[in-house]
């Protein structure tokens, strides 16, 4: 469905220097640095996938999304999406996609939400029947009924985001680009948005490409992860594999009957200790968890035990460090 090959894009950025003298000089002669936002990026995405696109700030996530949605023209490389080249066949191509920028609204600020929806219907030339069906479905699943008649500026961020997502799904797109859809949302709204994204993917088969800094988004939604750093793809694969490869540490928390003496278990490192609870970190490549538990039960009288995988956040931080991005 989406094939990206050898995509490159660089920006000319004026050098900013401090000081009045430098600033005056810059009025007449400006020095530029070339920033490679994308360096030879290739990947392909199948219909119906949800792909999480992650990377630190400035890694090139947004640039990729912008190239794929026809906003930017790349310097080199090809990108074929449903047979279109986004920046060449812009008008006929964008009819088939939805784009949500988490930080920018696509609705008209001062008018009721329903007016924006109707204008979008005219812009996308959505047939009346299709529009009505889609609207009914979206209103129901996203609980928009009470919001439709209030102006966008009066909505909370979570309410607005629900409307934004609804707006981009009105024309029944085949691909949905979500650029940080959960940014700034509270826990409840986040979960609602995630559930909804999952639903439309499962029920309507919409292919979804999602950028985010919230790893819980990725965990809840994406089977596949693309990690980008400094303009290159560093990892492309299943989230589970990523976890298996890098997230080999587990934390074991044990509660036990009071035990005055501090104890050590070989092959683990003690993270915290009190007379009733201890937390260990285990590298599962070195030591088996079952071994640790056997050792533990020999030493203390166990009450409770819990084993947690390393949070995905930590894995990503570790990855960023490893690739020095």
């Amino acid at each position: 469905m989406i094939t990206v090959e050898g995509l490159s894009k660089s920006f000319k950025v004026p050098k900013r220097s401090s000081g009045l003298r430098q600033a005056t000089k810059a009025l007449f002669h400006r020095e530029h640095t070339i920033v490679d936002a994308l360096k030879d990026i290739s990947f392909s995405i199948e219909p119906g996938e949800i792909v999480g696109y992650i990377g630190p700030n400035g890694a090139g996530k947004s640039t990729t999304i912008k190239v794929m949605s026809g906003i930017l023209v790349p310097d080199a490389g090809t990108c074929t999406i449903m047979g279109y080249t986004p920046w060449k066949d812009r008008v006929s191509y964008v009819q088939n996609i939805g784009v949500v920028f988490g930080q920018r609204s696509q609705l008209w600020w001062d008018v009721p939400v329903i007016d924006s929806f109707e204008l979008l219907r005219d812009i996308y030339k959505i047939p009346e029947v299709e529009y009505k069906d889609n609207l009914d479905l979206l209103v129901e699943t996203l609980e928009l009924q009470s919001l439709l008649h209030s102006p966008v500026r009066q909505l909370s961020l979570g309410q607005r985001m629900r409307c934004e997502i609804a707006a981009s799904l009105l024309p029944s797109p085949k691909i949905l680009f979500l650029d940080e859809p959960t940014i700034g949302l509270d826990a409840v709204s986040k979960i609602a948005v995630r559930q909804f994204i999952n639903t439309i993917n499962k029920e309507k088969g919409v292919t979804i490409i999602l950028t985010t800094h919230d790893m819980f988004d990725i965990e809840a939604l994406a089977d596949r992860v693309l990690l980008i750093g400094k303009g290159s793809i560093l990892y492309d694969g299943k989230l589970n594999e990523l976890r298996n490869r890098f997230g080999t540490h587990k934390t074991i928390t044990v509660d036990y009957r009071e035990h005055a003496k501090r104890f050590d278990i070989p092959g683990t490192s003690l993270l915290s200790w009190s007379s009733e609870r201890a937390i260990f970190s285990v590298d599962t490549e070195q030591t088996m968890v079952s071994e640790v538990i056997t050792q533990l039960s020999n030493q203390v009288e166990l009450i409770d035990i819990s084993i947690d995988a390393q949070p995905i956040e930590d894995i990503i931080v570790q990855l960023y460090k490893e690739y020095q991005i």
Partner: peptide, 14 residues
């Protein structure tokens, strides 16, 4: 300046 032209480009009209 505020990037709203992005929005214009992702809509199927001139």
């Amino acid at each position: 300046h505020n990037g709203d032209f992005d929005r214009v480009l992702v809509r199927p009209r001139s």
